[in-house]
Nucleic acid binder design. Structure first.
Length: 320
DNA sequence: AACAGAGGCAACCGCGGACGC
DNA sequence: AGCGTCCGCGGTTGCCTCTGT
């Protein structure tokens, strides 16, 4: 069965010839694509509009980056996938010059196997050995909205990002423990967070406060926040001197070993050099990280600060 | 050299949402 | 409100190339 958009006409299928590519490129660069369904006729192609669109987006667009994925791109894909799942188009927005199709293919052919080889479930990013119990219960009872419980937290959150399959601090949380950690309070936020992921909890906390979708990511120097609206965001994390940390914090211990400090502070954070102005991370050299989330659209931004305190052992684990 | 199997990737398919009439 | 069309997305397919025997 052909596409409904082209069922009436005789269309060619399969691989595109260089001549067809040339026709399509010439048409779009001179006329723009306009309505895709009219492109084949105007460009003199025996293809359906859908096929033309796909060919242009995935292959002929001039801003596409060709070649292998870099390690940093791979890490970005993994980190964003952990938050968003198989939303390839959203993930691709974090990778300038890459298409959703390319990211999807790379995931299926390469990253997926790497994660499995590391003992991680590519769907949940949790350890394969411990994920089945939690995964099944989460599917059966999906959690849509959360806020953090500030009083009943006793267990450390497992970190799904790290590669070491058996880190000494890794603990598996059962659902009742997760529920004691996180409680549902709001219906206005549709974030679907993975309560096993510290980063996911932080991501939720920020998005709840700012109505944006910051994506936390780990890298060799600590954490970053990948701004969902910024394609070239990897360079946007700024290290702040730790002494700039706010003096007016209200602490929320989200689990043993981890504290999130929620700061409502009038102090204007210097975001010079950060074009998007969306994220800042600071490291004081003693195992304390401080997140300060700033809305770049505001000149005198409300500042939401998040500190995560953890041991040097944990830092090493993040770095590996 | 010939063949088979595996892997990578481009393209297709079907669905759902947005939009206009 | 209902219908048709278009577009974008994620899942899937199938072809081509590579690698091992």
């Amino acid at each position: 069965m052909g596409h409904h958009c082209c069922s009436k006409q005789k269309v060619k299928r399969g691989l595109w010839s260089p001549e067809e590519d040339e026709k399509l490129v010439r048409h779009i660069t001179t006329q723009g694509h306009g309505c895709w369904s009219s492109v084949p006729k105007l460009a003199g192609l025996q293809r359906c509009g859908k096929s033309c669109r796909l060919r242009w987006i995935n292959y002929l667009r001039p801003d596409l980056k060709r070649g292998s994925f870099t390690e940093q791109e791979e890490r970005t894909i993994i980190d964003v996938h952990r938050i968003l799942g198989n939303r390839w188009a959203q993930i691709a927005k974090h990778l300038p010059g890459r298409t959703d199709n390319e990211v999807k293919n790379f995931w299926n052919s390469c990253i997926k196997k790497k994660l499995i080889a590391q003992g991680l479930d590519p769907n949940t990013h949790n350890l394969l050995s411990s994920s089945s119990h939690q995964q099944s219960s989460r599917i059966a009872n999906p959690v849509q909205t959360f806020t953090m419980d500030t009083t009943t937290t006793t267990s450390r959150i497992a970190n799904p990002v790290i590669n070491n399959p058996n880190p000494p601090y890794m603990k598996t949380l059962h659902d009742d423990q997760i529920q004691s950690l996180i409680t549902t309070t709001t219906s206005s936020c549709d974030n679907n967070i993975n309560p096993n992921s510290l980063l996911s909890v932080l991501e939720f906390a920020c998005s709840r406060e700012t109505n944006t979708t910051p994506i936390f990511s780990s890298n060799s120097s600590g954490f970053s926040i990948l701004n969902d609206n910024c394609a070239s965001n990897w360079g946007s994390a700024i290290e702040l001197p730790f002494e700039q940390q706010s003096q007016h914090q209200t602490s929320q211990q989200i689990c043993e070993g981890y504290t999130v400090n929620n700061v409502h502070d009038d102090r204007l954070i210097n975001v010079a050099g950060d074009k998007e102005g969306e994220n800042i991370s600071a490291f004081d050299g003693s195992g304390n990280y401080d997140f300060e989330f700033v809305d770049s659209a505001l000149m005198a931004p409300p500042v939401y600060n998040y500190s995560v305190k953890y041991s040097i052992d944990d830092q090493l684990a993040w770095d590996c």
